[in-house]
């Protein structure tokens, strides 16, 4: 019961934060009035459209209407610039698949690879394999993802010509996000996205595993007659995974946020591009929609991460004192 109350408290707090951020974003973006460079009839039409949309009402009144629409009919507004007269939810839905596919693919690649490398390094602690992996990890954790993107794009894409330089469009790929053409063109962005999660996962896996390998329960397990591999897999690895799993969850958010740049480099028509586009074209509703999407993703991730700590290791209650 106590646990349930705690989760509820966290969710309410999260919604409150979300609401405040939404209010701030709404007010700030509405304070920027779009220019009307058009003349004559078009300007008239534009002004009439804005009048009808309530752009000339006080900001708080507009916000009230906006909130009411969301709550009563899940209407997040309409895009007037990017996709003319398409509901924001639909614009978001259209742009989500590429982002999600790239990120999920990258996680599928990086999580097992990172953990495997970390385990290998921990088992070979202080041998040359470990030194090699640890040094490489240090470099790969620090180098920014766009540098990998350039390297991969130049050598694999341009010099060797193995992969197309930019991601192919949905039309080219035959209308499916998972067609061979599309997957082939996504290899490079996925690679560029995977380097740093692999490195950071390997680093923490190694750290956690070396710690649990030297703890007393391992000695006990060995004294009781388990072989080294049995003890490692059943005891050390299990315990080492406790702090790693929440980290994997947090990678989801990190990867979605970090893919802004990768999306730009590889011309992936995803949500990161939508966000930047909406700011420059002052597509208010799309901006708030995307903004809320990003905020919600990061808040939910933090929440799930904190809760999963408690779930995996009941001794931990994040945020409680």
């Amino acid at each position: 019961m106590n646990h349930f109350k705690y989760i509820l408290k966290r969710i309410v707090l999260m919604l409150f934060t979300l609401f405040i951020i939404m209010t701030i974003s709404f007010v700030l973006i509405k304070m920027l009035q779009p220019e009307t460079p058009m003349m004559g009839l078009q300007a008239e039409l534009e002004r009439a459209r804005r009048e009808a949309l309530g752009y000339y009402k006080p900001v708080m009144t507009q916000y009230w209407i906006y909130l009411k629409n969301i709550i009563t009919s899940w209407d997040w507004g309409t895009s007037w610039q990017i996709d003319y007269r398409v509901p924001v939810t639909e614009v978001l839905m259209r742009r989500l698949p590429p982002t999600i596919i790239v990120n999920v693919l990258s996680l599928i690649v990086s999580v097992p690879l990172g953990i495997a490398l970390g385990i290998f390094a921990a088992l070979k602690k202080n041998k040359w394999q470990d030194h090699f992996i640890s040094t490489t990890i240090m470099v790969f954790v620090s180098v920014p993802s766009f540098v990998y993107a350039f390297i991969v794009q130049y050598f694999l894409g341009f010099r060797l010509g193995w992969f197309p330089l930019i991601a192919s469009s949905l039309h080219e790929a035959g209308g499916s996000w998972l067609s061979p053409v599309m997957l082939h063109s996504l290899v490079m962005p996925v690679m560029a996205l995977s380097f740093s999660p692999v490195a950071s996962l390997a680093r923490s896996t190694r750290a956690e595993l070396t710690e649990s390998l030297t703890s007393e329960y391992m000695l006990l397990a060995r004294t009781k007659g388990l072989t080294r591999s049995q003890a490692t897999v059943r005891h050390a690895l299990k315990n080492a995974m406790v702090p790693i799993l929440p980290r994997i969850i947090s990678l989801f958010a990190g990867v979605i946020g970090g893919s802004l740049i990768i999306e730009k480099i590889f011309a992936i028509n995803g949500i990161g591009g939508l966000f930047i586009q909406s700011i420059y074209q002052l597509d208010y509703d799309v901006f708030i929609g995307t903004d809320m999407f990003y905020t919600a993703v990061s808040l939910v991730t933090v929440l799930v991460m904190d809760l999963s700590y408690g779930f995996l290791d009941p001794r931990v209650r994040m945020g409680e004192r």
Binding site: L13, I21, L28, G257, T295
Partner: peptide
Amino acid sequence: SDILSGVPFIVVATLFQLH
């Protein structure tokens, strides 16, 4: 500070640049 830390940095940076 909880609420502030929830604000995505990229949004703040962009809004500051615009405003």
